[in-house]
Each structure stands twice: as structure tokens, then as C-alpha cells.
Amino acid sequence: MIKIDADCNFESTDLSSNMEDYVESIELLSRKKKVVRVKDIAKSLNIKMPSVTAALQKLEEKGLINYERYGYVDLTESGKAIAEKVYNRHSFLTDFFHDVLKIDRKRADKVACRVEHDLTSEACKQIFKLIQFYKSESSENREWTERLNDLLEQRSLSEIREGDTSVIIFINESPYKKRLSEMGFRKGENIRVIKYAPLKDPIEVKIKDYNISLRVEEAKSIIVKPVINGTDEES
């Protein structure tokens, strides 16, 4: 039996998701800055100042923060505890999307923000177990984790964002396959998406030191794996 350390606390916070966001962002801001102002919170959550003020008053009523009008904002002890909880949940979800599902870190972070409040503590626990299991298995270099990685890392070229480099894994059978391979689109070749045309179709890519444009339809047949930036090695 695999032993999972499920010590992490996923109990519900009894706060609305908005309130959770406030607490979380105050905590994160206070780690970065000495003092937290209302306008910092407004900026980081992209919410208007008056709404922030109203929310802060509610939080103060609940005894989660110390807050003076036009002054600094502080989390109380119980506030800190909640912030910890919310933040933990957020970061383990980000890990899940990034480390397991191989979604780019920035986007993984965004997705985590969207789902963190809606997951029940039960679902959180189960996902947490899965992550732990996956991590221990992949640290032992189990073959299945590698296969899973390969599968999850695969993208069609049309899903790669501007400026990103990827490496070709294979090209699906299509009428253009031959032409593409003759022009240098081959397994193991690095390919960088330079830009999308103003109307999002064709895509300009760079391969073998030259630039070429492909229609999205053609790019879909090219299966690639993102290359972590900085390791632009040519075979």
C-alpha cells in the first residue's frame, strides 16, 4: 500500500469565494510588501476601490482583519489561518495543473484561481492523494509516468503560443505531410511560432533558420512538445 501523507487541511473556510480571494490576496501582498494598502488589494484583484472597502469592512466585522479607513490592512491570527488554508489549496492545484497535467505555469495558476473555491474538501483530498502518488511514482522513474508525460505534453502546433519553441514529435498523415517533411518538418526538429496572422490564420513559424507560414489546418497535423526555454539545442 502506498502511504499518502494527507495531513493537509482541506476543511471548508465558511467564507464566500470573494472573501477567500480577499484574504488570500492580503496574505500574498503582505509577503511582498511591508504594508498593505486598499489600493494594492484593488489592483491585485482588479476590483474597484469602493467595493474593496465594503468587503474589508465585512472582513473586519468577522474579526479576520484589522483595518482603518484610508489606512493599512492587517490579517488577524484567525485571518492568517484562513489565508494559509486558501493559499495551500491554490498552490497544490497549480502544482496539479502544471506538474501533472503539463499546463504552462502561468495558465495553470489562472485555472487554479478559477476552480479553487468550488472544489469540495473531499475532491481536494482525492486530488492531493493523486499528486502525491504521481510524484512518488515519477521519482522512481516508473515507465507509465513517462508515457503519461509524453501524452500530456503533446500539442498540435496550432496550440502553441506566439514566441514559444517546441520540438516536433510526429506529423499526422495528411495530403501535406510529404511537402512538409521535404521542407524540413521532421521528427526532432525545433520549431518556433513567430506569430499568428492578424486574422489568426496562417501561422508564421521558424524552422531550420527560415521562416515559413502554415495554415492552422496544416499546423494541426504537426504534433509537437513544448521545449523549456533556454535549451534551444539543434540535433
Partner: peptide
């Protein structure tokens, strides 16, 4: 008959 749009963008 589909023509692939593999068009070079020369420097």
C-alpha cells in the same frame, strides 16, 4: 485537391 499553404516568408 488541396494546395498546402507552406509559403516561405523570405527575409
Amino acid at each position: 485537391e488541396s494546395t498546402p499553404f507552406v509559403m516561405e516568408l523570405p527575409p
